[in-house]
């Protein structure tokens, strides 16, 4: 049940990432057309495209982890005995979680202050600084949930091996 919920959250995060990529393309195209045809590019386009990258990069992290997509060098570890491999897999996940998690926590901690002070990027549209940091923190949180789930499964899996 909880697993299904996590799957759903990951899928939604992925969809938002997809939408963000589509919007990025539309912003570039819109700006080029606007400039060429009407002498009016989209204001703050570069800023918004850059910020949307957070959705494209961070939101799918959990989904990629679920699909075992994160790249690792497997040639050496694959030759080790199964239990050692499981231990290494868990080690890898923990290190990954520590690194990404730290990033997420530090960024999330900036949000309240930036929200309170109403900080925005210099530019025509006065785009606020905090929303994408919330997205970043959300993407990291989902990723951490996925890591925990995977580690539990790693441990269960190795128990099963021990029984059989």
């Amino acid at each position: 049940m909880l697993l299904r919920l996590l799957d759903l959250i990951e899928n939604i995060a992925l969809w938002v990432g997809c939408a963000a990529l589509l919007i990025m393309g539309a912003l570039v195209t819109g700006s080029v057309l606007g400039r060429g045809l009407f002498n009016k590019p989209i204001p703050d386009d570069l800023l918004m495209i850059g910020l949307l990258m957070v959705c494209v990069i961070i939101l799918p992290l959990a989904y990629v982890e679920r699909s075992n997509g994160h790249i690792a060098v497997t040639v050496i570890a694959d030759r080790l005995p199964k239990p050692v491999q499981t231990a290494l897999t868990i080690l890898g996940r923990l290190i990954f979680a520590a690194f990404i998690g730290t990033m997420g926590v530090v960024i999330a901690r900036k949000v309240p202050k930036e929200f309170e002070q109403g900080l925005y990027y210099d530019g025509r549209l006065e785009v606020p600084t905090w929303p994408m940091k919330v997205v970043f923190a959300f993407g990291v949180a989902v990723f951490l949930l996925r890591i925990v789930t995977n580690i539990i499964q790693d441990l269960r899996g190795s128990d099963d091996d021990a029984v059989t």
């Binding site: 700006s31 400039r35 002498n39 590019p41 386009d45 530019g123």
Partner: peptide, 25 residues
């Protein structure tokens, strides 16, 4: 009028008022 100029800050409204379009990069 009609030129595309890379500009920042206060120059954006100034140049746009004269018919230029501005880009940032």
């Amino acid at each position: 009028d009609g030129l595309t100029i890379r500009a920042t800050g206060a120059f954006v409204p100034a140049l746009e008022a004269k018919g230029a379009s501005t880009v940032s990069m």
